[in-house]
Amino acid sequence: MATQKTPTPRRKAPVEDAADPAIRVLRRFRLVFNAVKTHFRAVETKAGVSGAQLWALSIVRERPGIGVGDLARAMDIHQSTASNLLRGLLDAGLVVAERAGTDRRAVQLRSTPKGARALAKAPGPFTGVLPEVLGRLDKRTLARLERDLDLLIAELDGDTRGARIPLGSDGR
């Protein structure tokens, strides 16, 4: 009796090689950004919220009663960015904010049934495809990527404040 083999996932062929290494790397960046954009478009189409809002909503659902500061830390974003993401979720009725407990200034967030339905419709991963894939890479690969990207960012004279604005948000 023959046993059935489970097909092994095939990797897509590498991008057509150009003679110039800078062009080849640029093409790979385009592939990464296009994959991220495609995921965020699918999220918005299916769930009706941005990718960053979906991530925030998923955290609120997982941690009922979370505050804005803790949400910002969980997403590694600035608290004002978390507040801006939440504003849309609150306006859409996907999240509610309550002032409860001893400190009436602190807001506790909870997802609503409408929020749960939006999450059920949305394609995963809720954190986005790039964080998901980066989380699967081994430590040596991540360390090498970090060093190499640090060199690129230094050449770009990149503004480090942008590192705390999640992909899939408008950064307001």
Rank of each mutant, 00 (worst) to 15 (best):
M1S: 15
M1K: 14
A2T: 06
A2M: 05
T3Q: 12
Q4E: 11
K5G: 04
T6N: 03
P7V: 09
T8C: 00
T8L: 04
R10I: 05
R10L: 09
A13T: 12
A13Q: 13
A13P: 11
P14T: 04
D20W: 03
D20A: 07
I23P: 00
R24G: 13
V25W: 10
V25R: 13
R27I: 00
R27M: 08
R28A: 09
F29Q: 04
L31Q: 15
V32L: 09
V32R: 00
T38A: 15
H39W: 05
A42Q: 15
E44D: 01
E44H: 06
E44Q: 11
T45L: 12
K46P: 00
K46T: 01
A47D: 02
G48H: 09
A52P: 06
W55M: 07
L57N: 00
L57V: 00
L57S: 01
S58T: 01
I59R: 14
I59P: 08
I59A: 09
I59F: 08
E62I: 01
E62V: 00
R63W: 01
P64C: 07
P64V: 03
G65T: 03
G67F: 03
D70K: 14
D70A: 13
D70C: 05
L71A: 12
M75Y: 14
D76N: 15
I77C: 15
Q79F: 10
S80P: 03
T81K: 15
S83F: 07
N84P: 03
N84S: 14
L90Y: 02
L90H: 07
D91W: 03
D91G: 07
L94R: 10
V95K: 13
V96N: 04
V96S: 03
A97Y: 01
A100L: 10
G101R: 08
D103N: 15
R105S: 06
R110A: 13
S111L: 08
S111K: 11
T112I: 05
P113K: 01
K114I: 01
K114D: 10
R117I: 05
A118R: 11
A118M: 10
A122H: 02
P125C: 12
F126C: 02
G128P: 07
G128I: 02
V129L: 11
V129F: 02
V129G: 09
L130Q: 02
L130S: 02
P131G: 03
L134R: 09
G135R: 02
G135I: 04
R136H: 14
L137H: 05
D138E: 15
D138W: 06
D138T: 06
R140C: 01
T141G: 03
L142Y: 06
A143S: 13
R144C: 12
R144N: 14
L145F: 15
D150T: 13
D150Y: 02
E155T: 10
L156D: 11
L156E: 12
D157M: 00
D159I: 09
T160A: 12
G162M: 12
P166V: 08
L167V: 11
L167T: 03
G171D: 06
R172N: 14
R172W: 11
R172T: 15
